[in-house]
Design a protein around this nucleic acid. Sequence first.
DNA 1: CGCCATTTTCAGGAGTGTCTGAAAATTCGG
DNA 2: CCGAATTTTCAGACACTCCTGAAAATGGCG
Lengths: 194, 194
Amino acid sequence: MHLPPTVQEFVLHFGEMGSRWGINRTVGQIYALLFVSPEPLNADEITEKLGISRSNASMGLKELQSWNLVQLRHRPGDRKDYFSTPGDVWAIVRVLAEERKKREIDPTMSVLRELIMKPPATPEEAHAQKRMEEMHELIELLTGWYADVKRLETDRLIQLLSLGSKIQKVLEIKDRLFVVPGSSRRDRRAPPTT
Amino acid sequence: MHLPPTVQEFVLHFGEMGSRWGINRTVGQIYALLFVSPEPLNADEITEKLGISRSNASMGLKELQSWNLVQLRHRPGDRKDYFSTPGDVWAIVRVLAEERKKREIDPTMSVLRELIMKPPATPEEAHAQKRMEEMHELIELLTGWYADVKRLETDRLIQLLSLGSKIQKVLEIKDRLFVVPGSSRRDRRAPPTT
DNA sequence: CGCCATTTTCAGGAGTGTCTGAAAATTCGG
DNA sequence: CCGAATTTTCAGACACTCCTGAAAATGGCG
């Protein structure tokens, strides 16, 4: 592995981290390398820099493409494929979130929906289904929020995130403005549309 | 595996999903089983219901305990350990988020901080460090937001999530109410198009 | 203290996933 | 369409993780 020390450590760390997710080490390393690279790299360069086999690089890149985490580039007069990560880090976050949702959340939701429908055969099963329903509802709330938020422009998104705990204050203000006098219970659903 | 069909499918699905994370199949199954169980279960019951070895169950439970995902219970006059998941699904989300952060984010942040400090030896390395800094900053924004939000009571949290993108509107209202003309960076952004 | 119930540890076999080199497939310029 | 450059596929070697049964440790209770 022939890399500047900083880059090397970064790459190795991502290799490690990768394997804590479902991603394998090589894929993590390739991604990290591309992320810090000033120029797009081709498969041979990756092979050489990471000290892995050509075929391993090829498979890793295929995997990254299936995750939409790398972009394929071409240089004029060069037949090689060059790869790079999106320059905008926020774009990366969006891609990652979307892909993980697609692979981890969506299938689970579909299983849950299906199982909740079935008529329970025993009280025990009925209880199990109730718990699944709770889980379903919770995930739906989270993904609903995500679906809304992901549509925000990056600027607004950053603004929202920076707000952090001040969100409390904002919500309180909103309550004071919109709460129907006399109703002690807070309305959890949408606020009155302006 | 002797389980009602609904429960069985749920358990199997979580086993699958588990292995897409870093978690192994058995751990996922045990967790799923406890989640839908009306009563806490002991290791022998788990062994029997999932058709796995006693020792495997023990290891899985140890793993889940290290994730703070199961609670240890005791029955009067029974020396066995009984296990259950937190009854409140939101508590589970909180635990999961916290643990994943501790295991996946925090170490990365510490590596990033360290690497960013080092003086670059080449322009290439300097560029790499700049990218690491971008990543660091982004993660800091996200974790900062998380740190704030996790302190909200569940009710408030749900309220916030339900709000979804309507948060936009609330922010606009806040702007209108509190902006000191000329002093805010934010009001450069497009005013509400409503 | 000794016994029994229970949990934990651990070595090794089984099973999966990863990585490689060689060979096949693809692509494109000439 | 030929041939060189490049990418992809794939069988098998290797490594790693998971799972089990057996044995050891733990922890109360008489």
